[in-house]
Simulated scan of single mutants.
Amino acid sequence: MTSLRKPFAALLVAAAALTACAPQDSASDAGAAASASGTAGGCAPGALTTRTAGTLTIGTDKPAYDPWFTQDKPENGEGFESAVAYAVAQKLGYPKEKVTWVVAPFGKATTPGVKDFDFDINQVSISDERKQAVDFSSGYYDVRQAVIALKNSKAAGAKGIADLKGAKLGAQVGTTSLDVVTNTIRPTVQPAVFDSNDLAKAALKNGQIEALVVDLPTAFYITGAEVTEAQVVGQFEAAAKGEQFGLVLDKGSRLTGCVTQAVDALRADGALARLEQQWLSDAVSAPVLK
């Protein structure tokens, strides 16, 4: 599936120009409070208080989708989030052979309760509501949401949000994508809510829904490789503060500050930007839906 990255290489560069990146202040806000306590014991490389001594355990959902991962193998280091996870691990003093992956369903990772990972990476948007249940690192990716629709549907010709209100829309449960459907589009037809993006994509392909809301890179991957009878209709304006993906940790985790420091260091030295260019440069500029 990695061969699909190149045909879109010039495309996300333009999309990124349209994407309003959150200011650096907001990137660190998410983990600021936790940083104060999370670094109390220090961030000695390779010697953090992890679930298993000497090992860093990272969670993500299954299947692990392109372009965030490749071949459904988080452990191979390919795909943006796999690469980011290993870069963070390296900053924390854990080389690849000291990293273990576990399956962490999206919904379970963001709800209260003890986790079986040290941190989770799974396109989880930082929000005040979620911060009541879990900790977040600072943001590692600035993101916009987008809508894709079957080419033969009325929704495919949408020029603005108003044109989508009468469409049968879908999104994955518990996601920012679903928030956009319910709070931004506010459709007159009850939207379909799916337990996974796999189910949502199948519904789109089968014509059970006309359009699907996902993040922008995923939108271009789906239409370019999985549901080729669909097209990217457009992207939504960024929120005032900017939407960001963050690493998820247990509420009150002693690792939150150290993980945030690692993410901030990767942003400061340009590593995050380089990984984004390498793995997420597949998409084209999409019109902004207003």
Rank of each mutant, 00 (worst) to 15 (best):
S153D: 04
K151D: 00
G38Q: 02
A85R: 04
V147E: 05
T55C: 01
P23Y: 02
C21I: 02
G207K: 12
T19E: 00
A167F: 01
A149N: 08
P74T: 10
G170A: 04
T176P: 03
I222Y: 13
A22I: 08
G224H: 04
Q231G: 06
M1I: 15
V13P: 00
A262N: 05
A240G: 10
E75D: 11
Y141V: 01
T2L: 12
F245G: 03
E97L: 12
A200C: 11
L289D: 00
L255I: 14
P63W: 00
I185F: 09
A85F: 05
L11S: 15
L92C: 03
F220V: 05
L56H: 03
A146N: 07
G54L: 06
G113T: 07
M1A: 14
D163E: 10
L12W: 12
F194H: 05
T182Q: 14
A286W: 03
K205F: 15
V233F: 08
F136N: 04
Q71W: 02
A162F: 09
F236L: 12
T100F: 02
G242W: 12
N122G: 15
G166S: 09
T55D: 07
T110H: 09
T111Y: 06
E78D: 13
G252I: 07
T218Y: 14
Y94G: 01
T111M: 12
Y65D: 11
A202P: 10
S281Q: 07
W279K: 13
R274S: 14
T110F: 06
S196E: 02
K154M: 11
T50I: 12
L4V: 10
N122W: 01
T176I: 01
D61S: 11
V232S: 04
F119D: 01
D120Y: 15
